[in-house]
Design a protein around this nucleic acid. Sequence first.
DNA 1: AGTAAATGTCATGAT
DNA 2: TGATCATGACATTTA
Length: 798
Amino acid sequence: MLYLKKYFTEGLIQFTILLSLIGVRVDVDTYLSNQLPPLREIILGPSSAYTQTQFHNLRNTLDGYGIHPKSVDLDHFFTTRRLLNQVRQLDRLSVPSTELNTWLVHRDSETVVSASSQSSPSITLDNGAGLEDVDNPDATPAMRGGSGAPESTYNLNAADSSLGAVALEGNQEQGSRDGNDDLTKEDIDLIDILWRQDIDLGAGREVFNYSNRQKESEEEKPNPQENKDEEQESWRNGVNLQGAQPVDGETGESIPEQLPGLGSQTSLSLQECLRLLEATFPFGEESEFPAPVVTPEIAVSNEEVPSTSQGLPLAPQLPPAEPQLDLEQQWQDIMAIMELQAMEVNNTSLQANSSSVSSGTTESNTAGNFGLSTRSTPINQDVSLHQASLPSCSQDFPQIFNPQLDSVSITPRPTMLRLSSSNSTNVNSTFGATNLTGIFLPPHINSSSNNITATPILPDPFSTLLEESMLDEISLLDLAMEEGFSQAQASQLEDELDSDSGLSLDSSHSPASPSSSETSCSSAASSSSTSATFSEEGAVGYSTDSEVANAETEEGAVGGYQPGYSKLCRMSYQDPSQFHSLPQLDSISHNHTYNLPLSPAFTEHPELPISTGKKTVRDKQSSKLQPAQDLLDKHSSRDERRARAMKIPFSNDKIINLPVEEFNELLAKHHLSEAQLALIRDIRRRGKNKMAAQNCRKRKLDTIINLEQGVQDLRRDKARLLKEKMEFIRSIRQMKQKMQSLYQEVFTQLRDEEGRPYPPSEYSLQYSADGSVLIMPRCMTTAEQNRKPEKKQKDKKK
DNA sequence: AGTAAATGTCATGAT
DNA sequence: TGATCATGACATTTA
């Protein structure tokens, strides 16, 4: 029965997964949380498991249905919750309620790896990947397959797939227009119908047109110019948040988004500026600031502009913001990750990742990440499995510490700071929002960056190293930690368990059905409750002396035993599967079986020796059944034997579980010797204590389990946060690089009235909140702070 | 026979 | 104040 249930439940879940794979949404919560007792109990088992029903309360409710604490139902409860939790955890990060969507649980890892490595050398964790895919022709086919096609899907949740579909959106319309060669009109119509009906297939429409995708990729290959255009397009999409509002690739619905860590208003205007800049001036991938211009300005700015925290020109500030990462903290993070799992270096993906750090070939990727990575990084945690890669120090560090690269990325331009601070009014109103430090860095990072200004190079390299490796680590960690029930569930269960301690008494179990171990044990273990009603039921066949029997059975009977019940019960409940989800607990297989006296068992064995009021009869019977008595003695508890030896006229059940009033009445009814009374009280005390001990141990175990789960949850949270942090940092770095490029690009192409370029040492670009870009003389920042710069205004679009 | 785990029992404090 | 419960410590049983 146990296994039947278990398999049924697991089958149910698998079926659910299958349904989800073919596009049918199954809300498990609905089935579990609604009040459909049959299904709910089939899956979860009675939720009252392990909740002790107070005996007196039970007596009040008579045949209250309870569950034995060691019942398989309880085990099943754990198992089921664990399985469900595992299923839920698959999309834990983004789907608030359990909603099974397009998972491929058993995934051919090779396909995944190959797909990801083939598609893009960069880490495409974030939603930026979606945009990348649109505009990166090389990556498009594979990634489309990854985001849309079931066979390679790692989109574990709706949001993810939607975002993935966003990536496809860009080319989708075009692809549709290009013609669906291999699809019949009916197919197309059907797809469109489904698409409009928002049947979540986890893919955009274009995934149905593989030939079209292939065609596109082939067409785009020989035309690098178009590629570049598309890259720019992706860049625009990535930068312009307004333009690149995430859209459900299937429905076209807009998806609300957030930019964690970035002020939306600020980033909006900034990114808009970027977009406008880029749109106006084609930019090179690897533009650098001319070193001669930069170098002399550093000293000046440091001396003249002590306070540069207000309005700051964009590009010049980027490098100083680099040392945001506290090296020590990074190492702590590393150690935290290392604690969780042993690091596994993936050389293959290492190259890809390392090349994506600064290589111009991945510009579109970085642009994509830059634009979107901050939006919903948590969503794609699982996707990062594809990118499992740990850059090795030997490869990464040289590149990271490449002086040339550093000179580009970290060359400070403090002169610009001085300039911007010259007009404080304008700074506050106009540039406050474009303060790169505020834009690019979370405040805490900014604050911590002060320590590292001396070694501005380090944080970035380490962040790179960290983020790449952590992505892998954390992803694996996520999966590894999915086991077991969640903390919430555990606490919920704990609440249930703690609501009352002790037995769930079930007097409804028929004592005549001990054939099944489960049933017999339930009834046996919970038999303590039965005794109360048992006496009313009467003990059929207890004695041929009906008169005495009536009198005695009202009080219950001592001496009825079910041989071996105790053992049977103990063994039957030893189901270590309960803790399979927690390997560290495999060794723990406590059996806190309530080894309680068995009045129900007595009733079904009328042939067994029964305690009767007539000692003569009992003595005669016991003498006749001496071998059976020995057998019974062997399997009865010590207290039962003692009670029998002392000829206690009622069952241990009653002694232990009767409410104190009734217990006292019972004692008063009989004329018992002091020794008998003492024994009865001892039996009661020990029996209660036994249950208490069992409860206590179970509680202890639960506490341990919950604590471990809590630790796992916390570790997972920490890893997730670290991962997010790394992704933010990476995005920031990419943004800064992009800003540098754009700035330089724009600046070098600016001409004054006479057609001469502006010398970078004398002018700088500043961005205002309204999206306009100004070129200002640097001297203005200090000399004329209060005067608004009107040297030249280049109003771009907005 | 030795051992570890499970279970029972006792003492004690809290409710 | 007695009953009950919780729990640590120890004893006993079981595998």
